[in-house]
């Protein structure tokens, strides 16, 4: 009888819930590895970021090469307007571990042609072009002393869902040192991004184009796991 109750407890929903714990996946813009504050000047070019917003979705976790788990929780719009880092908590069984993570940066083509949507995809979030259809996958606005524009402003609205200017990127990041909390902090090294673009030639992207796709690829290439 004792064994029966023990087994009953083990397989009860309460027990299973107790075995589930949450972990946090966050994104942090950094300059030389230090978390950036919005509107604070960095480096010799006094680089300031005023807006940083982007969509992620379809987060998948892999252990070695095998997909462990996929969160199909739709799109998240990460908006750094009030905080240094932003992200989301995920709940998964405690034994759940992973060695690399994949996610989409941007909005897929089907969603782009499916009409008005609520929540993160509502056009009132300022991430939808108005003069033509399509979501802005990644929005980065700010100033830099070496930017040869009015008020030294740069504006990068990266989007596009149709070939040849489809801008969504699949990001794949290996995780070598998964902490016991299983939390993952993904760095957006803004200094490295700006080392790879020339603000003299490229300081304003506001529609899908070849430069937009090129910059989306550069962005994808600099993302990394912090303290990996």
């Amino acid at each position: 009888m004792k064994l029966f109750f023990t087994l009953l407890t083990l397989f009860s929903p309460h027990f299973l819930i107790a075995q589930t714990s949450s972990f946090f996946i966050s994104f942090t813009p950094t300059y030389n590895g230090v978390p950036m504050e919005l509107e604070k000047a960095y480096g010799s070019d006094s680089l300031k970021i005023e807006t940083l917003k982007f969509y992620i979705s379809d987060i998948s976790f892999f252990n070695q090469e095998q997909q462990w788990f996929k969160f199909q929780d739709g799109y998240q719009l990460l908006d750094f307007s009030n905080e240094l880092k932003t992200g989301k908590s995920y709940g998964a069984p405690s034994y759940f571990s992973y060695s690399h993570i994949e996610f989409d940066l941007g909005v897929d083509s089907l969603t782009n042609v499916s009409g008005a949507m609520e929540g993160p995809l509502d056009p009132m979030n300022g991430m939808y072009w108005t003069w033509q259809s399509g979501y802005i996958n990644f929005k980065l606005e700010g100033t830099a002393a070496n930017c040869p524009t009015r008020k030294n402003e740069f504006t990068f609205h990266l989007g596009g869902y149709q070939a040849p200017y489809a801008g969504k990127q699949r990001i794949s990041l290996p995780i070598e040192n998964l902490p016991s909390t299983r939390d993952i902090e993904i760095e957006i090294p803004i200094d490295e991004l700006f080392q790879k673009i020339n603000l003299n030639d490229n300081n304003e992207i506001m529609s899908p184009c070849a430069t937009s796709v090129e910059m989306a690829k550069i962005l994808a290439s600099v993302l990394k796991i912090k303290n990996n």
Binding site: N112, V113, S114, G115, A116, P123, Y128, T130, W131, Q132, S133, G134
Partner: peptide, 16 residues
């Protein structure tokens, strides 16, 4: 043909 869905069409004149 800038707009791909009737739902999103109104955004264009509202913002222009």
């Amino acid at each position: 043909g800038a707009i791909n869905h009737l739902d999103m069409q109104a955004l264009a004149p509202i913002a222009h």
